[in-house]
């Protein structure tokens, strides 16, 4: 495999899914719907789940998802691997995002928040009850459910920096996945992170170029999708980890958006939304770096038996 083939592969599993997601969200982020908060949140949430799904299909196959449905006609001797349930979660989230947003639009203020909480709690309950990764136990299932709720709440705290926070969370998850020997997880998380960063950059550029300010991506359907997906991937990564990554690190990474509170005072005193987003984003980024350094200090990231191999994918499969 030469560098051209490697770039083609990266384009196929990372850039194309991210591009598709950005295109799907574009009408809401830069188009006529950008002043309608529910549509902005719904589109960003849907697009985030879409990026994960498209990357999943390109990394594995369409059948890997379709055979998980009871009515599927796909026959295979191979059992459904437990981490493939992540795709099913992404499908469910992609459907739930517009449903939640529609219901929120139809509700009065106050009730819409209750709806968001209800959707997150329901999703956490269903995933904690029915989605099992290897070495599952009551404690782990409870942790999965609680982490879904905690991560979604953390994304709500990030406010207008939710998209950038999602980029940081999934990028950090990709690094952890790579370190833990789960190359495919790393690919899916990278695609999702690039999609989130792409949407965040698009929103920022659109806001800068336009005279009318659009609605930020904050809370609602986006927090539901980003939080539940991040928590599920984190717990899957923890379950499949064969490199001894500290278990707490997966929990911390899924809740990284709480870092937005680090410079909360500065964010509140900011003259405009862009500056507030910057301070929140900086907090999330600093927390991510701190978490990474903590993992690095406890986990030998440098490979003592690494060779001087010129293999471009050396880090993925060791050697």
């Amino acid at each position: 495999m030469d560098s051209t083939e490697l770039l083609k592969y990266a384009g196929s599993v990372v850039l194309i899914p991210a591009f598709v997601a950005c295109c799907a969200a574009a009408p809401a982020l830069v188009g006529p719907f950008r002043t309608r908060r529910s549509i902005v949140e719904m589109s960003a949430g849907f697009a985030l789940a879409l990026a994960f799904l498209v990357s999943f299909v390109r990394e594995t196959s369409y059948e890997t998802i379709s055979r998980q449905f009871p009515w599927s006609a796909v026959e295979s001797a191979a059992p459904i691997e437990r981490w493939h349930r992540l795709a099913l979660i992404a499908v469910a989230l992609a459907i739930l995002a517009p449903v939640l947003s529609t219901l929120r639009v139809m509700s009065s203020r106050g009730v819409d928040r209750l709806l968001s909480v209800g959707f997150v709690v329901s999703a956490a309950f269903v995933i904690g009850s029915f989605v099992e990764f290897p070495e599952s136990s009551f404690t782990r299932q409870l942790s999965l459910g609680l982490l879904c709720g905690a991560s979604a709440y953390a994304f709500t705290l990030a406010g207008g920096a939710a998209l950038w926070s999602a980029a940081v969370v999934f990028a950090t998850l990709a690094v952890l996945a790579m370190l833990s020997g789960c190359a495919s997880f790393a690919v899916l998380c990278t695609a999702t992170a690039v999609a989130a960063a792409g949407m965040a950059a698009t929103t920022a550029i659109a806001g800068w170029k336009s005279s009318t300010e659009g609605q930020p991506v904050a809370g609602g359907a986006f927090a539901l999708v980003a939080g539940v997906l991040a928590a599920s991937v984190a717990m899957a990564g923890r379950a499949y980890d064969t490199m001894g990554i500290p278990p707490w690190s997966w929990f911390v990474v899924a809740c990284l958006p709480v870092g937005a509170l680090l410079f909360g005072g500065l964010a509140r005193r900011s003259p405009n939304r862009g500056a507030a987003t910057f301070w929140k984003m900086l907090g999330v980024l600093l927390l991510a770096i701190a978490a990474f350094l903590a993992v690095a200090s406890l986990h030998p990231l440098d490979d003592s038996d690494a060779s001087d191999s010129a293999d471009p994918m050396d880090g993925i499969y060791g050697g």
Binding site: W83, G181, S184, F185, Y240, M243, Y317
Partner: peptide, 9 residues
């Protein structure tokens, strides 16, 4: 490191 990767998903 390679052992751990080979044991991965």
């Amino acid at each position: 490191k390679l052992d751990a990767n080979l044991q991965g998903p």
